[in-house]
Design a protein around this nucleic acid. Sequence first.
DNA 1: ATAAAAGTGAAAATAATTCTTATTTTGTGT
DNA 2: ACACAAAATAAGAATTATTTTCACTTTTAT
Lengths: 153, 153
Amino acid sequence: MNRSSQREAILKALRSVKSHPTADEIYAMVHDSMPRLSLATVYRNLEQLVNAGMVTAIDGAGSRRFDGNAAPHHHKRCSVCGSVSDIFSEELHHLDNAIERLLPLLECSACSVEFSGICGKCRAAETPFYETVSVRTERGRVNTKNEEICYHE
Amino acid sequence: MNRSSQREAILKALRSVKSHPTADEIYAMVHDSMPRLSLATVYRNLEQLVNAGMVTAIDGAGSRRFDGNAAPHHHKRCSVCGSVSDIFSEELHHLDNAIERLLPLLECSACSVEFSGICGKCRAAETPFYETVSVRTERGRVNTKNEEICYHE
DNA sequence: ATAAAAGTGAAAATAATTCTTATTTTGTGT
DNA sequence: ACACAAAATAAGAATTATTTTCACTTTTAT
């Protein structure tokens, strides 16, 4: 892998945040100081960095996200805003060890674990959000519906 | 939720296979016997079925996949062909219990676990496949490269 | 200087959602 | 059973978002 100023800028940008940005978000970050940067370059380099083990890809609902933090940790995805935050917890070593022991039994080589819940920001937000809930129609039937929810009254 | 022949056909199709198809694949299955079916309808109904808890969504690399099997089980994603297969294993109850106990500690409401490895079909395949590996250039540098791999000779 | 690696920008491919209009489903009252 | 109205749903086209590909140019390491 030859060096390139683009790849270095991408890696630096990714390491400067804790937000696990998408390719597009990384593009926006680096594009400020590198206006000729192309989005295809961002995608290509992120793939290379993932293959080289310097960056972790986080797949799930929506776009792929990226993590430049090499320290072992877990992730929590917010079910409201979709953001991904880090979980550093001693408790999870046991979990990882248990999984590690299971892998050969299941003829697997890896396992990804992702927690989910509402992030602190969304829970504290003044602005309400929508969530699919079951509601009873006037006539007594049950529908699923996007209902406005807000943790502040 | 009112009944609709489309939704019933979608659910029936999904329950008839063990392959965890994408919305597009389900569309293709149902479209044979229901030519006027639209892809948007498939997406909408799958979302409804997921919200109603009758179907599980499997997110990860690539398109969202769907699972009509209500019995508790885990998934293994093939790192070669991307297919998702079921894992039914007693061993995993311990894992699930451990995770269940961790959730309140981590302020989370759920956790998704996905195993990965090479599926039986790909391991047994005569046809070789490509995988990104590190290779040494003639001049001594190390590059990542898509290399042909085959488990048969 | 040269060859491999990497970048650019546009286009294509994939994936998923939105919008408007038309149709279907279902509870209620004949 | 039958008609009605309201709610739910579907169709089909269009749009948006995401990711990859391609032909060419530039950069990097020897």
